[in-house]
Amino acid sequence: MTTAPAPAPAATREAVGPTLIRLHQAGNDLVVVDADLGKSTSARKFRDEFPERFFTFGVAEQNMISAAAGFAAMGHTVFATTFAVFAEHAFDQLRMSVAQPNLDVKLVASHGGVSTGEDGASAQSIEDIAAMSSLPNFHVCVPADVVESEAIIEAAATTPGPFYVRTARPKTPVIYTDGARFELGKAHMLRDGGDVTIVACGLLVERAVTAAEHLAAEGIEARVLNMATIRPLDVAALEAAAADTGAIVVAEEHLNHTGLAAMCAHALATRNPVPMEFVGVDRYGESATWSEALEMMGLTPEGVAQAARQAVARK
């Protein structure tokens, strides 16, 4: 038996255009709106197939989001695409035009996190998950690889209500080589272990798996949960992790004090507080390659492993 060659690394943003094309061809009534970044988000591929259903609003995200809400109020499922930092630019529109009337606007924002790299601090969103998670009615998802990205976009297209999906710029390893395991609102356990749980999202999932392998060599068995859905949070998986492993690390490419880390700590504080450690961003980044930018923030397998050792030591 020969092993299939590992798939080439791919960016989570690359799934956007092709998946939207497939979903519309499959009968979903999609409209795509764009703010002059369709080449980078890959949404422009949808325009090439369905030009009459692709609307560009120029470099004007606030107008784009409220207009997307108008399309949704007429019955369409609307995918709005831009970069994560520019999605933040339209926060008030996401709040009043989309979240309050609970409309079917699916905001898929690429270039999330410091891994946007060379463009520097203004282009590196480290607050977007906090902003979007603060909006009632919004689902918030972060895919760990391109395979999961496709599954999340499909879930967004077929689940009523607003979504925020954060994709990333760099090509990163494919984790789900045998197909996606994504289920909206559910964590996916990539590895089980009894000593500590590493909860991660996005590009930190692959790094958490590597960290768990390093820890295993030291005799520490780590459970790894891919928390691809941040809102609604899989509280049951967190409770089980706290009960089964007694220590939790949360790793994300975002500010910990307002991101997945804060939400996990909030969920566990009243249920089963156990020692927790956090791996994330605590300041604005700077220009560097995507992997250097992650390293500068300590978002490495070793950074995750060290946090796990600390959490275990506090048990």
Partner: peptide
Amino acid sequence: SFGLGLRLA
């Protein structure tokens, strides 16, 4: 903006 989206739809 909302009205524009409605109109285009």
